[in-house]
């Protein structure tokens, strides 16, 4: 479990996921994501951290084309495995879901249909594999369930979702996502609904599947501990924009954006015992703004230009570390 992709990556590999200047708005008027650039390389675990309302879930859902009809995506590039998805038809999206990208949701209890046995639901996921007999499909599913450490997989195939605990169901959900051998796994708060002891086990499992299946992971979380535990790179989202991005150890050791700093200051696990009062960020998360900095209203170091000019995306890393921050204060 060392930071950085486990396997040596070839020179200049093509990104699994590439977003350039992607904006998403609901009903054409409510912006949720504004001008996001993001890349996920093969075998990499990229984390997106943000509070509720920051647009991180909208971004995750857009990768698989799971947004409601009222959402409008615009931008330069949104491509999975080099295939452009911005103009893709629903038909084409269906071909991509599964082999190109799969998703794990926050609540494992609502991931599955409550009406059908798990075995049947997993079997349905293999509809594309027309060459396989049912028996072969069953073998494949059992193997996948074993790989995620589910005890007694054969019996679980006959179980309904309510008969399994949250942790076990999340394991099944991960197995289901990996059945189609996707190149990208999008995990939207996969451990939020679980107990800490189970969370540690699921995070460990995600590390293992990256190592064994070579899958890239886009991890969405609001929990700094979870991000620190498994990610190689982190993007911090606030009010629809990525405000800071860089390698996980650099961001945690030396956050540059005022929001990232404030967020880290609030994390109870980082505060020394004996503090009489806990720090907070005053005010509420604002709606995403198209012009200016979204954090201006709560920022302790706000400048005059923060409200009327969008801050530039500035490299702040020492040497050739790819560490970027979107702040007027970082601008040269």
């Amino acid at each position: 479990m060392t930071p950085g992709p486990a396997t040596a990556t070839p020179v200049n590999p093509a990104p699994v996921l590439e977003l350039a200047d992607v904006s998403i708005s609901y009903s054409g008027i409510v912006p949720a994501v504004v001008g996001v650039d993001l890349m996920v390389m093969p075998g990499e675990i990229v984390g997106i951290i943000g509070e509720s309302g920051s647009g991180k879930s909208t971004l995750a859902h857009s990768v698989l084309g799971l947004l409601p009809d009222s959402a409008q995506i615009s931008g330069k590039t949104l491509s999975l495995n080099g295939i452009d998805m911005l103009g893709a038809s629903e038909q084409a999206m269906r071909q991509l879901r599964g082999p190109a990208a799969a998703m794990i949701f926050q609540n494992p209890m609502t991931t599955f249909s409550p009406m059908h046995k798990l075995g049947r639901q997993l079997m349905d996921l293999l509809w594309r594999e027309r060459g396989l007999s049912n028996k072969e499909k069953r073998q494949k599913i059992l193997k996948a369930l074993q790989d995620v450490g589910l005890p007694d997989p054969a019996a679980r195939l006959e179980a309904y979702p309510f008969q399994l605990s949250g942790g076990m169901l999340q394991r099944v959900a991960i197995a289901a996502a990996l059945l189609m051998r996707p190149s990208l796994l999008v995990a939207d708060e996969p451990t939020t609904a679980l107990d800490v002891t189970m969370e540690a086990q699921i995070l460990h499992l995600m590390h293992e599947i990256r190592r064994n299946a070579g899958v890239s992971i886009l991890m969405i979380s609001h929990h700094l501990g979870v991000i620190a535990e498994i990610c190689d790179r982190v993007a911090v989202m606030y009010a629809g924009r990525i405000v800071e991005e860089g390698p996980v150890d650099v961001i945690f050791a030396d956050p540059r954006h005022p929001y990232t700093k404030a967020l880290f200051a609030c994390e109870p696990a980082l505060i020394e015992t004996g503090a009489t009062r806990l720090p907070v960020i005053g005010g509420e998360v604002p709606r995403p703004v198209r012009i200016g900095c979204g954090f201006a209203g709560r920022c302790p170091q706000v400048l005059e230009c923060c409200c009327n000019a969008t801050p530039p995306w500035v490299a702040v890393g020492a040497g050739n570390v790819s560490h970027f921050s979107r702040c007027h204060r970082s601008a040269p």
Binding site: E199, A200, L203, G225, I227, A228, E229, A269
Partner: peptide, 15 residues
């Protein structure tokens, strides 16, 4: 089990 927000203190195995 509580994840530590410090990438340098990753755990080898779940506790």
């Amino acid at each position: 089990s509580e994840p530590i927000p410090n990438p340098a203190k990753r755990r080898e195995a779940p506790p």
